[in-house]
Amino acid sequence: MKRKLDLIESTCVPLPLENVDTDQIIPARFLKATTRDEAFFGENLFRDWRYRADGTPNPSFVLNDPRYGGEILLAGRNFGSGSSREHAAWALAGYGFKAVISSFFADIHKNNELNSFVLPVVVSEDFLAELFATVQANPSARVRIDVEAQTVTSLATGRSESFELNAYKKYCLLNALDDIDYLVLQQDKINAYEKTRQHEL
């Protein structure tokens, strides 16, 4: 859902696994919903890691670890690979995450997070490793993400990095606007393009 994202300051949930695919973030059997009920998807975030086959919580999975919580997910590299399901981003939002910090995101999922107002923050491998170590040693350690300044700061150590975000998308996040708001205003340009294109397809 559209929401303003400007400043996120929170504890983090560490998931130090690489290549987490969107089938794990939200398994296919939960994609049968025909409405965008983010709370429903959030309840089933990481479903098959979070719960055992008998439906009881798996105590060894980080979302069931009472030490950890917060609005930021720390994830290993290549987060969100595989299926294009935006439901994965909705599940992250529905669970309460506002940002995911990783060293590398899969393309489609990264766009889906941005379009779902969950901020994908790319940091260096080195900083990510430090963040994992800091949070695992001290689950109450806080991280601050400043969207306007495009910086992510580990408040426990003071280390900070800047992250990429194009000016257009930053404006959208800071003002709770989405791409459809923008595109429907471009009707004249779309008409002009259609009239002048060289090859009709």
């Binding site: 294009s84 379009n115 194009n166 459809i180 595109l183 009707q187």
Partner: peptide, 19 residues
């Protein structure tokens, strides 16, 4: 491949915003 928000973009405008 695209996400559902992007499907909506194309429905609405026959366009998509994409780097």
């Amino acid at each position: 491949g695209v996400g559902t928000s992007e499907v909506e973009m194309v429905l609405a405008s026959q366009c998509i915003l994409q780097p």
